[in-house]
Nucleic acid binder design. Structure first.
Lengths: 408, 408
DNA sequence: TGACTTTGTGCCGCTACTAAACAAAGTACG
DNA sequence: CGTACTTTGTTTAGTAGCGGCACAAAGTCA
């Protein structure tokens, strides 16, 4: 029943057009059974069955004829759809100031294997990415699974279409490094099949949260996060990352949130960047940051150990007000239907969710915008999973050609 | 060859799927001949021919077998594709503080007939919209052409999905008026066929400019304009208006552009709204606005009559700097590949384009963003044409069902 | 145990396309 | 002036995807 994909096939003939959407439904967990797959795709049962069979033949999903527990509903129990645990994986990688991490991520966004990287301090991206890719290649060899491609998350804006890292924060890399090209070269040299992609870590975190985390079901998802220094933003529209025309959208760090604030290198003063990042928090709390662990970790520790310290409380309130002002500005411009916070911003939200929501509601127009849900990130290693999403995307778009192109 | 559209047709069977894209290509002027239609659609000549024939049978376009001037190229001259001048039209309407305007807009965004409205001062939207629709109905009757639907542009944010006007600027309407519903009722009562739509005027202007004006070909188009009071923004992504989850996106008026600026009703100070609108311009130029004509007209007159007046020059420079700061903020967030300015902002751009571009380049990150083209609006009555686009949209999406549904 | 409900599957036909061969309508050039 | 060439339109045949339908399968409910 399979093996008929060798017929004449031309540019616009994308084969079975429902194949991609169907795989995406399974991938995002929205099609647990063939019955709901039928409903979600809006096709007949016959078509849905054929599509599922084809995806199974491709080794991507499994159709479980044994329903197990029938959930108590009437009628014939539906066959369950699940990701094939022996199916292909994507190689995901992430570099950050404390080191790197490589992982294999299967369909559905599950991390299959991971290799926490030791610190590689080098001003040469090629060297660092070489180590990252080697770790990933080792994981791949160990698992013996097929690879659909590789994705890399970097803590820097990535300019399109060149794929250069414009501000590799605290990586000691030169600004403008050709990370995408370097990563792709290393991937190819390591003999890893499939295309290689590179993206900003906050962007990729947002993508991952949208598909597998707190952002599921949102149409316009705004994600704001601060890691060690600076603030990053991301926007997912209709399930696709909005990176703007040059990949530089959602550079939200320089919204003015405090007219009397400290000066910023951008030329303004009181920018979100310098007013709500971990350094701002520590100084507002009257602490002198030490050099041993990351500023984010120090902030977290401080919040956890002495949440009732007067200085900490003041700092939390101050940063929440500033962050709220920034989020309100973004709400006025983007009008998202959900906001997700990561890093220190997530901690601030946890510390006093009511206050943050109140500020956003107060300063965004049309009171009803105050109803925007603001949620914390829920996924572990969301940037990593998001990097894998990049690699999976071609398969999700068109499983047939993506998988057949690779075997060539 | 026609009349076969009465066969069984179900939810997902959208008939000839290339029909909509083909019509859109003709509509936006990107398919002057059948040959380029073939290329743009990425189909065979046979298919393109059939699609064109079907659109002609629907009375939407004309296939000109007489090529006229063959443009000097080699090979057989291609048949020209043109909008059918006897084809259906959309009823477009616009209300503004100085009155209203109704028009018939054909495919391609050409205004076929127009009725400049006398001033209707009324706090009752139903009364005003009744007069607008009546004027439109008269135009329709006079033209004798079929109507695909109606669109209305209002100078107010329109909340989705209810379609209420949240801040009907200077219309004396109550905030929260159900404009969409009221307009739809009046349209139905007037016996006008087709669905009725309502949108914000700046949003619709952006849509029109994107399809027929200065925004043609842009993928991420940002439009900023100020009419009489306040500033409006709009974003067109991939050819579709981005209105956000509640229709309130691009409320750009409250970006901070002057930390020491005048207070704004939003709670902040130095907002784009109060710093770059006509009132701000007139006061910065040391003029006392009179009540006779609109503030925008007074500003234009002042710019035209005494551009070298010292006060005017200072005011122009000041407002350009403020506007540039606001645009830079938007560039950092949205990263558009083109910016279009309307109303007074357009006049400011014309007055000193270099200065505005320099400010935007200086204050948006990654110098290359300074390369964002900033252009003036080019379309007359772009909000009106945009309103018509709303009405045309169902036809562009699926000509077959949209036109057949109407005749029922 | 039988009626009912829901899900999966085989078969038929429709339709929107591609492919390929041919026809048409012009230019380029001897 | 006529022939070769180039590009465009048209006809015909063939194919793939999917809807519609009838039937089978697998459970629940009385």
């Amino acid at each position: 029943m399979n093996g008929k994909a060798t017929t004449t096939r031309t540019r616009l003939d994308r084969g079975r057009s429902a194949l991609g959407p169907a795989l995406e439904l399974v991938h995002t967990g929205r099609a647990p059974t063939r019955a709901v797959l039928t409903a979600e795709l809006g096709v007949t049962r016959a078509t849905a069955g054929a599509v599922a069979a084809e995806l199974e033949a491709l080794g991507l999903i499994r159709v479980d004829s044994n329903p197990g527990a029938a959930a108590g509903s009437q009628g014939r129990p539906s066959h369950r759809l699940a990701v094939d645990e022996k199916g292909p994986v994507a190689l995901a990688a992430q570099v950050h100031p404390d080191g790197f991490r490589a992982a294999l991520v299967g369909l559905g966004g599950t991390i299959v294997a991971t290799a926490p990287g030791s610190v590689v301090v080098s001003a040469d991206p090629a060297q660092v990415l070489g180590a990252v890719v080697d770790a990933g290649a080792a994981l791949l060899a160990e698992s013996g699974r097929r690879c659909v491609g590789a994705g890399l998350a970097v803590p820097s804006a990535v300019a399109e279409p060149e794929g250069t890292a414009l501000n590799p924060l605290h990586l000691a890399w030169p600004a403008g490094a050709q990370v995408r090209q370097i990563f792709a070269e290393r991937v190819r040299e390591a003999g890893i099949e499939g295309p290689a992609f590179t993206g900003n870590d906050v962007n990729l975190a947002a993508l991952a949260e949208h598909r597998h985390g707190a952002g599921r079901g949102a149409r316009d998802l705004l994600c704001v996060a601060t890691g060690h220094r600076g603030v990053g933003g991301a926007l997912v529209l209709d399930g696709r990352l909005h990176t703007g025309s040059a990949g530089l959208a959602l550079e939200v760090g320089h919204l003015t949130v405090n007219p009397e604030g400290r000066p910023c290198h951008c030329g303004g003063r009181g920018c979100l960047d310098v007013e709500t990042d971990p350094l701002a928090f520590l100084t507002a709390a009257g602490r002198v940051p030490g050099p041993e662990v990351s500023l984010l970790q120090q902030s977290r520790d401080l919040l956890r150990t002495s949440p009732d310290d007067p200085g900490v409380r003041v700092a939390v309130g101050e940063l929440i007000d500033r962050l709220g002002l920034g989020l309100a500005g973004l709400v006025n411009i983007l009008n998202p239907d959900r906001i997700i916070l990561g890093g220190l911003h997530r901690e601030l939200l946890d510390a006093d969710p009511e206050r943050l929501r109140a500020v956003v509601a107060d300063r965004s127009l049309w009171g009803r915008s105050g109803g925007v849900p603001i949620l914390p990130c829920t996924l572990d290693h969301n940037s990593l999973v998001g990097a894998a999403e990049l690699a999976w995307q071609p398969v999700l778009d068109d499983p047939l050609t993506a998988l057949s192109r690779e075997s060539v």
